[in-house]
Computed example of a mutant assay.
Amino acid sequence: MRNLQLSLNQTQKIRLQTALEKLESLSSKSNSNSCVTVADSIPIYEDGILKGHGTSDRKGELVATVCGVVERINKLIYVRTLRSRYKPETGDIVIGRVIEVAPKRWKLEGLFAVERGWNRSFEELSNVYSGERKSAPGSTASPPMRRRTAVDELNMRSIFTENDLVCAEVRSSQNDGSLQLQARSQKYGKLEKGQLLMIDPYLVKRRKQHFHHLEQYGIDLILGCNGFVWVGEHVEARDTIVVNDSEQLAKKSGGTSMDLDEQVENHTPPETRQNICRIANAIRVLSALGFNVILEVITETVKLSNTMNLDIHEMLGSEFYVLVAEKEAERRSSLSKRKK
């Protein structure tokens, strides 16, 4: 709940404090044996353990040097901090903005919301899916990639240009602190018709699925591991993202009719825009309260606003923050009871 400034009346303050205390007690019960603060002793159950990050040997006793949760992997013991900077890992889904079209690559900036030492990355032309060849029908394998030519390099701006928002996957990290990205399938690429949100990266947990299609709202939701979240109109996967010269000339020669077609295609219905804003405000509320931003909690928050018939701007009011905190406390309490 850092940087949360709300004008709460006395009743709302009591309700919010009660909900947060309940959440804290549920969290402490579930992690009673693993939560530590600075200088706390970490129990050792076997010999030959390896001291990892956040631990130190003090007079033969293993103590914690940071606040967090004790994690054990075989004989390795380390402390995972609760609030930490984003550390890129291979396979992470991230979102960034193109600042330069360089030879055979695009340079992205502002990739990470907190870790400013990793705010430069690049995406090579050879690592971008072009869609020229398709996989066999019914196959889930990614389409094969062809070798890029000088013509592809000349047409790089037809794929991504300056100020474009791009969703990609972390391929590797470089010694200078930059990252190498890749977009080898149709689910990656340029993001349009939506909102970009910046939240603390530790609120986005690594999961098997970071791409979500909310069918009931017609919305695509991308939870970037770097703390960038995209909420936009649902877009069907396209066969190609590379436009050749002949197609560009055909569009230019189409005249006014082509322009009208493009305007119709780029139009976003008002209902979809409202859904985008409603889901974005739900994420803002969850982020301000310090709750994990996961699909289940987001949808429950949106349903709560619809049930109460709240306008989009009313979701950022003090009362709704309190209601969301109480709802999350009830959800976690029911989950803990089910486990028992």
Rank of each mutant, 00 (worst) to 15 (best):
E61C: 08
E115H: 14
D92L: 06
V114W: 03
K75S: 11
S126K: 15
I99F: 04
F112W: 02
E115A: 14
D57F: 13
S56N: 09
W118H: 13
L62T: 13
V79T: 04
V69A: 05
R58M: 08
G68E: 03
P88H: 09
N74I: 00
T55K: 01
R72T: 14
E124C: 14
D92G: 03
N74M: 02
T65M: 06
A113G: 00
W106Q: 08
K107E: 11
D92Q: 04
T81V: 06
T90Q: 11
G117D: 14
R80M: 05
K75L: 06
E89D: 11
Y86Q: 02
G68Q: 03
K107S: 01
L111D: 06
R83P: 00
C67H: 03
I73N: 15
V63K: 08
V66D: 02
L111N: 13
S84D: 11
V69M: 12
R80A: 09
W106R: 08
E115I: 01
R83E: 10
R72V: 15
G68K: 01
V94W: 07
R85P: 00
S84E: 10
A102P: 06
I73A: 14
V69I: 15
Y78M: 05
S56Q: 14
G117T: 12
D92P: 01
L108C: 07
Y78S: 08
V79C: 03
P88S: 09
L125P: 13
I99D: 04
Y78K: 06
K104N: 14
V66K: 07
R97V: 13
T55N: 02
K75W: 01
G96K: 10
E123Y: 06
N74F: 00
G110A: 13
K59G: 00
L108I: 13
L76Y: 00
A64M: 04
K107Y: 04
A102M: 07
E100P: 03
G60A: 06
R85N: 07
R120C: 06
I99G: 00
D92E: 06
R105L: 14
K107L: 12
I95M: 07
R80G: 00
G96P: 12
K87Q: 15
G110Q: 14
V79A: 02
T55L: 09
Y78C: 05
I73M: 12
T55D: 01
V94E: 04
V66P: 00
S56P: 00
P88I: 09
L111W: 12
S84K: 10
A113F: 03
L108W: 10
